[in-house]
Write a protein that binds this DNA or RNA. Structure first.
Length: 172
DNA sequence: TCAGTGATTAGG
DNA sequence: CTAATCACTGAG
């Protein structure tokens, strides 16, 4: 069976607008400090697409923080915001194509800040490779739930047309 | 509706 | 060095 198999590099090196909806219903697996593992179904994500996307952190080019977005798809981009929240993102596409997917919700934890707090994800996960890491990866579930789209949250500053792009994907 | 809280970034 | 900004949350 293909159930419970880790997603490999090929899944992540596609365009972010293909990968993001594909993550809905997949399982995020993380290793807790005690050594046990948790598995959480992904229910909400948002796509951030390249330097032209005014809402994407890479829109100004490379910085120390966004460097990982220029790496090969499958790497983890984690950043700290509002003085108290870690945001978990998955890098997609090929080298030098800065795209990422914000994981906004998993089963049991709604909201990007609450899920990282609940799963114990912080800056130490920056740069982890989902294709080979021993403490975080994503598994195929064999299920393919439907999804709906809406504009992205918290990016009003980006302006048109970016604010209105339907790049938020939520499980139906 | 709005304050909290601190890393990141551009600019002097 | 300064100061603005910020892919959020919880209280009221």
């Amino acid at each position: 069976m293909m159930n419970s198999s880790r997603l490999g590099r090929d899944f992540y090196i596609r365009d972010v607008l293909e990968v993001a909806p594909g993550l809905i219903g997949k399982s995020l697996v993380v290793r807790f400090p005690g050594g046990s593992y948790g598995k959480f179904s992904i229910i909400e994500v948002e796509a951030y697409r390249g330097e032209e996307d005014r809402a994407c952190h890479a829109f100004k080019g490379r910085t120390k923080r966004t460097e990982i977005m220029y790496a090969e798809g499958g790497h983890v981009y984690v950043y700290f915001v509002y003085g108290m929240y870690w945001m978990l993102n998955i890098v997609t596409s090929t080298v030098n194509e800065p795209q990422a997917i914000l994981i906004r919700g998993v089963d049991g934890f709604t909201g990007p800040g609450r899920l990282t707090r609940g799963l114990g994800i912080d800056g130490g996960f920056y740069g982890e490779d989902l294709a080979s890491s021993g403490r975080i990866w994503i598994e195929n579930t064999g299920e393919n739930p439907g999804y709906i789209t809406t504009p992205r949250i918290g990016i009003a500053y980006a302006g048109a047309p970016w604010t209105g792009k339907p790049w938020r994907f939520i499980i139906k």
